[in-house]
Design a protein around this nucleic acid. Sequence first.
RNA 1: GGUCCUGUAGUGUAGCGGUUAUCACGUCUGCCUGUCACGCAGAAGAUCGCGAGUUCGAAUCUCGUCGGGACCGCCA
Length: 577
Amino acid sequence: MNKYRTHFCGDLTLNDIGSVVKIAGWVENIRDHGGVIFVDIRDQYGTVQIVSNDNAIFDNVTRESTVCVTGKVIKRDEELINKKIKTGYIEILTSKLEILSACSNVLPFEIKTSSDNSLEVRLKYRYLDMRNKKVKDKIMFRADVVKYLRDKTNSLNFTEITTPILTASSPEGARDFVVPSRKFHGKFYALPQAPQLFKQLLMIAGFDRYFQIAPCFRDEDARSDRIYGEFYQLDLEMSFATEDDVCKVTEDILYSTFSKFSDKLISSKPFKRISYKDSMLKYGTDKPDLRNPLYIVDLTNIFVKTSFKPFKDVVVKGIKVPCIADKSNSWFNEVVDYAKSINMPGIGYIMVNDDMTFRGPIDKFLTEVERDELIKAAELKANSVLFFIADKCKAPNLAGLMRIELGRKLNLLDKNRFDICIINDFPMFEYDDESEKYIFMHNPFSLPKDGKDIISKKPTDIIAYQFDFVCNGVELLSGAVRNHDLKIMRDCFKIAGYDEEDLKEKFGSFYNAFNYGVPPHAGMAIGIDRMLMLLKGEDNIRETIAFPMTSGGQDLMMGSPTTVNETQLKDVHIKIR
RNA sequence: GGUCCUGUAGUGUAGCGGUUAUCACGUCUGCCUGUCACGCAGAAGAUCGCGAGUUCGAAUCUCGUCGGGACCGCCA
């Protein structure tokens, strides 16, 4: 092959018996038996055992050093075969070992069990962490999936075009990462939260179908399914296209990718469509995990006349759980504890007896009429439990969180299924209590339905051609039909408190482009890291990324963010307070 | 911005008011010709994250701070 090796470690087989080979890799383990020494050599493709009776060959060899080994491949005797490794039928009788680069420090952790270590130390020594086969395989898996996505999207006649990383800050959406300009005093570039405007401009430029594996940057706090800082999307856009067209393409890409890279049962195409409104009512979230059979019922009307203070003049939601009335007090206490952890004062519940009477902490506050109505509304059966979630405005969300927690706690989620659905008909606007105005709920450039007269409608009643694909409770992607009509766009921004001058100033050339013939277009963007997380069944999104940051936004290996020197600051006209 | 969990040799842990600070892996030394999580004998290695307080006495309790993790807000 070259001066370092003739074979990869993992590729040596019985067919190589008798030949003199050269391999290169890391010293995984050394077993010194006095008169005979065994050493395992590892490269990306596998591990092979080398052996020698000449101790001097192994002088100064330490674990995890890189070495180049010359030797003759020999067959192992029957009783010495190690069936646990692919190369276990052979070994290399070593004639020469050259240390290419010594590992002179004590290892911070054992490579073989690196995943047992704290994330802190794993990330600091990520290059050692990734020597572990399982960790490395996740990165290889990512490469395979990304390649597949690229090939698949290409095969659907999408054209790959890259868009700028240094771009303009935008007033909507997440916090931008800003980059100070040296040449323009007091001005800043921003890293793109998504290539949104550029891809729309590509449509205006006449590219029929665009895609990109696009890095996106958002300065918002992390979660276990949301990494801080930067992530990747399969971003695509189609001209002269409808919501249905994009959904069809997306279903094709998702279904084929999930089928290829997972053995789990996948929802059949076309995926189930659920309106935003229905999803909020039934699941208390816009990203429902449909594997969870629990659903939310609205009980507000039943308690209109109640004298029970916690249910009076508030929204009351209920979650019925069948067959758990015999759970222990401590089990229910744990549910109450969770409720408290999400800022509920507590959570009321009733258990249904065999004769359909109730017991439990709330029962004494219920009237006979209320009891009957509850049985009907929640379809209560003997031995089921009804949990109550009461709050002036947050009841739907809180009920949604309780539904998730109950599903998790009761082990209702089938780990061998991918339940994918499409949530559509998102509202274009929502009311923001803090700023006391209407703000864009999703993307400001989405097309409202019945766009001609939106100005006469109550803003929160305006529905957009906007959709999410949700898999097992994880938002996998967002898509939309974009607005291609300047008048409707002006109206939309007017509702959000921007006049035409603001529009021109903040989205200058984009706004301008809309005067030059815009094709109706629509598109979407898949969160690649999240999709990998789902495919691999990872609990944390960092496992899918080669060099992730901590949740606080630091790179423990590179030490970023760092200070910069005075000259650099001066160059970009910045003074640190 | 808020809430909760967490920090003990290189690593993973035990200890939770008085210990010579536990154990395992790793490291180092010696022995060992068939191991593959090799074995055996021995050794070194810890200002118990940092600072203050409570106490006769703090790894242990309290407060602050810094790091890590999870969640709410935020983000989509």
